[in-house]
Nucleic acid binder design. Sequence first.
DNA 1: GTCTATACACCGATAGAC
DNA 2: GTCTATCGGTGTATAGAC
Lengths: 208, 208
Amino acid sequence: MLLIMLGTPIRDRQAERREATRAEIIAAAWAIAEHKGLAGLTLRDVALAVGMQAPSLYSYFESKNAIYDAMFGQAWTEYLDIVTAAEPTLPKDPRAALKVVAHTFFDFAIANTTRHQLMNERTIPGFVPSPESYAPAVAVVELARRDLARIGMSGDADFDLYIALVGGLINAQQANEPGGDRWARLLDVAIDMFADHLGLAAPKKRAR
Amino acid sequence: MLLIMLGTPIRDRQAERREATRAEIIAAAWAIAEHKGLAGLTLRDVALAVGMQAPSLYSYFESKNAIYDAMFGQAWTEYLDIVTAAEPTLPKDPRAALKVVAHTFFDFAIANTTRHQLMNERTIPGFVPSPESYAPAVAVVELARRDLARIGMSGDADFDLYIALVGGLINAQQANEPGGDRWARLLDVAIDMFADHLGLAAPKKRAR
DNA sequence: GTCTATACACCGATAGAC
DNA sequence: GTCTATCGGTGTATAGAC
């Protein structure tokens, strides 16, 4: 399976090695960030974890923010994979689909607080994601917008409101009662409220 | 008007002076935080602004976080004053009252982004507000809860949902389009949606 | 190309002289 | 109470060994 055309090697072993080391650094950074907090990440800790001296990291990332940036892109890519995999199983019923999409996002945020903090909160002082790392985030939003449009949710206003509603619940849960479920229990109620607002058919109750 | 009982002075000039200097330091800190960002605040800058050397600040605050703490308490006290002053003018109509309360909070957050960031976002790494500084925040919540209970909004769930909804809109506005009004325009829509959820009487439309 | 060694500028915080 | 001096820590930069 190993093919070589003279002078044009199929594999660039050096680039592979470099990419593997970059991945190793990012993995170590996640582990430290989850343990000491996202803002508690230091280059010296990361270097120690991968068996380097701190300045050596600059051979792989041009700054600390570049490491955050790679983490940002990786986290959104992971979530894009989850959402892409779940898309074919979306319920036909609009109200049920709204709930699945909301729950997917909510549960990911709660289960991965560090990732959510980096992905959705502006908590690292100087950090602004690069266009490349932002791309998977845009893809997630586009995919969600497409899914919800198929449900009949047209217009930016409804989508913006939906995002703000789910995001508000996540933020309230994380900020006021991390680890609890006081706001998590409200998610279905909130989505029903939103579905009523859209004028979607009620599921069973609401005979009126 | 200056009364002195022997040995028990009415005024403690030293404490007054100290308190005045503390206020001066906090005012300087706000100005710098608004200019360089909340996380960009440094003790050296604050000291320079009030004509001191950095370590001298430790005569007035035991740490940098203590300065943040005083700012936190001051900001919530300011907002408590606003809410307290506005309370007597609250509309009798429940739906209208919901909107006034929401707008008051939303507008304050948008008009004072630095204050809102410190008050409602966990953006400073090690900072946790002290019970004393947290007190006015609790008072604001209690007051809002009382106002909304008079409207007929009983139960924690509705209140929590209301808070999350308004907070989500503020966060979305600040994070995605600071200075714009894409989410601000949704506030009334959102409150109407919430009022419908509560079963409040519609204002004029919704003839059905 | 990769890594070490060293250094810089800045930070919050502390000690101690005055 | 305010200063100077200084500490340990940070992100970052660069020279040079390998």
